[in-house]
């Protein structure tokens, strides 16, 4: 679809859903609808059953953790000779100053085979309950995706009847894809020959950053972006 078509479609979507959607955005020709968790099931059913929409497939469902969104290890404007070493240990900063929305979101990717269209839905997860409604009753394929999001992010889905861990080890604790979970993990496993069993121990390696996260704001980059877009 061309940009004009997508924009027209976006405005019809806004009209037909009205108050049911909190926000609708356009990013690289892709439409994202932000939905409150209380409206999620109503919107999902409408998206599936409405003849103009007909999103019969849930292609993907995933959790996103926005804790460190927009933060870099290294301030580029003021960086000097000792700049690089600062990134070796990541410094936790106050997340609320930058993001300003709930920390966790669940993102749904829908596909309409009838109308050949894609749509993205984002639903922020209330931090108190960490619970949003399950869409298994709308798309059965959501079952494992929701188990995965529960496993990796700790997001709970109400009315999901089989919310077990999926990808991590039996007896694993914590939610590894949260941004504050260390990349190297917390425990390591080895076989102990004397005890004749596998034992878990705290990790012995140290976390490190090889390449610092940087967000460039200098004019050179902005100039190039304009060039490459045109």
């Amino acid at each position: 679809m061309t940009t004009n078509e997508v924009e027209a479609w976006l405005s019809t979507l806004k009209q037909s859903f009205g108050d049911l959607i909190a926000n609708a955005q356009l990013s690289v020709n892709e439409v994202t609808l932000e939905v409150e968790e209380s409206n999620l099931l109503v919107v999902a059913r409408k998206l599936r059953d409405d003849d103009d929409l007909h999103f019969e497939q849930l292609i993907d469902l995933c959790g996103v953790d926005y804790l460190y969104y927009g933060q870099s290890d290294w301030e580029t404007e003021s960086a000097s000779g000792n700049g690089f070493s600062r990134a070796v240990e990541s410094q936790p900063t106050d997340p609320e100053t930058i993001w300003g929305k709930p920390r966790f979101a669940v993102v749904y990717h829908l596909l309409s085979i009838t109308n050949n269209k894609r749509l993205r839905i984002r639903c922020f997860v209330p931090e108190k309950t960490m619970m949003i409604p399950s869409v298994v009753s709308v798309w059965s394929g959501a079952n494992w995706y929701e188990r995965e999001a529960f496993d990796l992010f700790g997001i709970r889905f109400s009315e999901h009847d089989d919310l077990r861990r999926l990808l991590t080890d039996y007896g694993f604790s914590g939610h590894p894809f949260r941004k504050d979970f260390p990349l190297i993990g917390k425990v390591e496993i080895r076989y102990d020959a004397t005890e004749k069993q596998c034992v878990y121990e705290p990790v012995s390696i140290e976390p490190r950053t090889l390449v610092p996260r940087v967000i460039r704001h200098d004019a050179r980059y902005h100039h190039d972006e304009e060039d490459s877009v045109s």
Binding site: S27, V28, D60, G70, H109, V214, I215, R216, E225
Partner: peptide, 28 residues
């Protein structure tokens, strides 16, 4: 550095639709 935004790109993989959902906050 990749401009801030989010994108979903899919290809017809031999097994089905293989997609990447990418969120960038403007970092490298």
């Amino acid at each position: 550095c990749v401009p801030e935004g989010e994108v979903y790109a899919a290809v017809e993989h031999p097994k089905g639709e293989f997609g990447i959902y990418l969120v960038s906050d403007g970092a490298n």
